[in-house]
Design a protein around this nucleic acid. Sequence first.
DNA 1: TGAACATATGAATAGATGTTCATTTGTTAA
DNA 2: TTAACAAATGAACATCTATTCATATGTTCA
Lengths: 103, 103
Amino acid sequence: METNNITNDIPDIEVLFDLADLFKVFGDSTRLRIMYILSSGELSVLAIAEGLGMEQSTISHQLRVLRQNKLVRVRRDGKQMYYSLDDDHVQKIIEMGLEHVLE
Amino acid sequence: METNNITNDIPDIEVLFDLADLFKVFGDSTRLRIMYILSSGELSVLAIAEGLGMEQSTISHQLRVLRQNKLVRVRRDGKQMYYSLDDDHVQKIIEMGLEHVLE
DNA sequence: TGAACATATGAATAGATGTTCATTTGTTAA
DNA sequence: TTAACAAATGAACATCTATTCATATGTTCA
């Protein structure tokens, strides 16, 4: 019965384009570093920028990409916006990738 | 003890750059389609090109990228080169991505 | 209200990347 | 060995994308 290929899990080729778009988001070291630093807990934009030693604007632009792809969540507290990882998939996708990279 | 973040799984920031490079490979629909079509079994370069309706050269270029990242394997049989998926990580990474895309 | 601060946004630029065309390399079989 | 076929490669081009600078939006607090 059920073979172990992915054929059954991909109903439509259209989905592959969406999937490529998702992986594109993971395919940038700045965004990956943002997700990494957020894995310890929520942080403000400035805290992320300082933590990574990058410009506030750069981080803000990339956070937008992450937000649009539902990989991070935002919460406002006063003047600050606190970002955190959105769901478990983020971590799982990264872990799967790591297994491949580290082997 | 062991919290459920990914901090412990990422020993070095350097690795994040390698990881981004890996995800870059998944972040292209042509390469993703190649991996998809290979999930049914090994295929020659021409068979892939015809299956996807793309140029032989395009496929060959992308197969090289997949090869360099150890995502596909090659085997020569006469004039033809038969490509197949390299390991389980390929499928697992794609499946994780799909879970996110399809939700 | 207005000054100070945090974040978002837009335009511009530089660098990366995918595809195509033309050609080369490598293999088979006559 | 040579013709025919399969795959790989290189150069050129067009497109996309990440970063930066400058500025706008939004919030707090005096």
